[in-house]
Amino acid sequence: MDMILTELSESLRAGDAPKVAELTQQAISKGIATKTILDDGLIAGMTIVGDRFKAHEIFLPDVLLAAKAMYAGMDLLKPLMIKEGIPTIGKVVIGTVQGDLHDIGKNLVGIMLKGAGFEVIDLGKDVAPERFVEEAKRADALAIGMSALLTTTMPTMKKVIELAREQGIYGKTKIIVGGAPLSSEYAAEIGADAYCFDGVNAVERMKSFVRA
């Protein structure tokens, strides 16, 4: 593998955004294929970051610094990916459910999904059930990700899933849920495909849904 890509991956792991931007530009100028820069440089780096986070070797702030560096590289690659017709791994519609204004967890999940190469359509907070499903249909999304921090807003997740069934996207579009009061039992009860306890876990589960 080209030394630039190794260095790129290492700089990303170190959360050095300016260096990642510089090395990504160098890799582009050197004629390395866009997909190779993405896979062997940026995503390779983020995968190691995720693994180290899971192993408790690094912590949330380290992951977020790496994510910022990932964005710096993606800013340069994204126009090339569009030009060359390189698809993202998948599109994910995310949001905090209707009635809930807590969005820090949802934001972190979005950052990590983008960092892993997914296209994230962030609907924000206080999102009506209809919007989740409409956007997922429009984007032919791989998944819908919903967050809730209040027990009182959790039932809205079930409404989204019911709506997804009615609209015929349930099954094709996976549903992941997360938030402090949730559990895998609750996720199963309402028919979600996965409960994710943090952003790195969300990336892992989302990768398992990627269509062949």
Binding site: G15, L60, P61, L64, L65, A67, K68, Y71, I104, N107, L108, I111
Partner: peptide
């Protein structure tokens, strides 16, 4: 995009 300072 100052995610880490924002989260902190």
């Amino acid at each position: 995009r100052e995610f880490a300072p924002g989260s902190m």
